[in-house]
Design a protein around this nucleic acid. Structure first.
Lengths: 257, 257
DNA sequence: AGGAGGAACTGATCGAGAGCAGTTTCCGCT
DNA sequence: AGCGGAAACTGCTCTCGATCAGTTCCTCCT
């Protein structure tokens, strides 16, 4: 399906568990057995769809569900009394949403659909049952959660110590790597439904300045952000400029073989 | 023991498991049974001491130990090619160190002792054994890890959206709350071994500017940072100014009763 | 008592990025 | 084909915090 001319979603029922982006992501690190795939399939049962802009987890609420993102983009953010918001991270297909709110009493942030999204709702009991049944799966999910935390730390570095240009470059590269893991992008680029306002809210910049920085990166022949698409014009130059070290989202399998 | 005139440490052997700051912290959320305390005691066996300034976990290495901090302060940080460093978080007694490096292939950051510290080294097997033996303990530790992640997110907000003054105020309050949980601080203040350089590296500011901001906060009668001590001159005013909402490190028990 | 070294502190200048106030381009809609 | 709204884009000014270049204070050392 095409939205905005370029943004690609994969809708419809899941024909096979192998199509799940989550499975695809976990498989990059753990060989999953038949029974483990069955457990994952069970977690995908409660399918739900949300329209773009819909907020389905609220700061301060104590809703205790987690979600597995099947298609579309989502952002998690916090708001300040001043009215401004800080986007903590974006989630793409294969990512978990609100895993932390299962453990903590209340959700400390908002989660909002950027595009129309499809998710699978997972109740805390289901998750815990799945974990006791298949400890390897538990370790794999914990690994994914650790990776998410490492990404938040990297965003902290972004905002704290990198210039606006390095920040934008680094962010566009990170999303590229994350999407490539689930087959939604490569070294040429990827479809990206974010507005420049989204980038600004995520990177601690003003939308106006994001615009200027994007123009600079484009003029320097490194990356083009336009019309819902990110195109890497010179991948190596961009990696060098952004000082991108992909160790933090790697790509080597952890505890498991 | 006194260092720098005011900084207080509690050295020597652990006479009772109840003296462990970790136990004290976890007890604020979970009632721990006798057997569970025994398991925790076992984790405290391998006692080690490091001098101030010693780095005991290195970026890029794959050392797979975690540590429980018994006394002293520690900071975890990442470095950039430009030479500057970003302190991601400080750890105080009762906190885990390097929990993420147990799961991920390589450590993605440094951990360095700010003061002389005492830690208990925990090997991955011991941790996993303890978790399978007492699932409640596993949940409690996961809860603590979630809380740590929530704090990193709050630092992201700090650096991304708060002014330098709000940032410093918010940080000093957070450390106060964390220390009070293990009995090392209260509404009057706490002993703090950090230099203004530490604050600068953690808050994404220059040391010079940190100095100015501290002066401003002191002159406004909110908080005094001096001589290794943080004194809250007007606690309520500071909380209001920093827009401090302690929900993110709360203080309500999660899954457990 | 005198010096050495390091943190704390201060003033002056500079620059990245914010904020404002627009215009232009690109959509979908009727 | 024309309209309306949102996102993208641009020029201008101003501010917050970095940087530089010091001085002062503290503590340890002999």
């Amino acid at each position: 399906m095409l939205i905005g001319g370029v943004y690609l979603e994969c809708h419809g029922a899941l024909n096979s568990i192998h199509e799940s982006p989550l499975v695809r992501k976990l498989r990059a690190f753990v060989a999953l057995s038949g029974p483990e795939l069955d457990v994952l399939l069970r977690l995908h049962q409660r399918r739900r769809t949300f329209a773009a802009g819909h907020a389905f987890l609220h700061q301060g609420h104590s809703q205790r569900s987690a979600f597995i993102l099947a298609s579309g983009w989502v952002c998690s953010y916090k708001t300040l009394p001043s009215g401004s918001r800080q986007i903590v991270d974006f989630q793409v297909p294969g990512d978990f949403l609100g895993l932390r709110s299962v453990l903590l009493q209340t959700s400390d942030h908002f989660i909002e659909a950027v595009t129309r999204v499809e998710v699978s709702e997972v109740l805390p009991e289901e998750l815990l049952d799945a974990f006791t049944e298949t400890p390897r799966l538990a370790a794999a999910v914990l690994w994914a959660a650790s990776r998410d935390e490492a990404m938040v730390v990297e965003h902290l570095i972004d905002i704290g110590r990198r210039s606006a240009e390095e920040r934008v470059a680094h962010f566009l590269l990170e999303m590229g790597f994350r999407l490539s893991l689930v087959g939604l992008g490569d070294k040429a680029g990827y479809a990206c439904p974010l507005s420049q306002f989204h980038l600004a809210d995520a990177l601690g910049l003003s939308a106006v300045h994001v615009n200027r920085v994007l123009r600079k990166l484009r003029e320097d022949g490194m990356v083009t952000f336009r019309g819902g698409k990110v195109t890497f014009d010179n991948f190596e130059k961009l990696v060098a400029f952004a000082d991108f070290d992909m160790a933090y989202l790697d790509q080597e399998r952890p505890l498991l073989k």
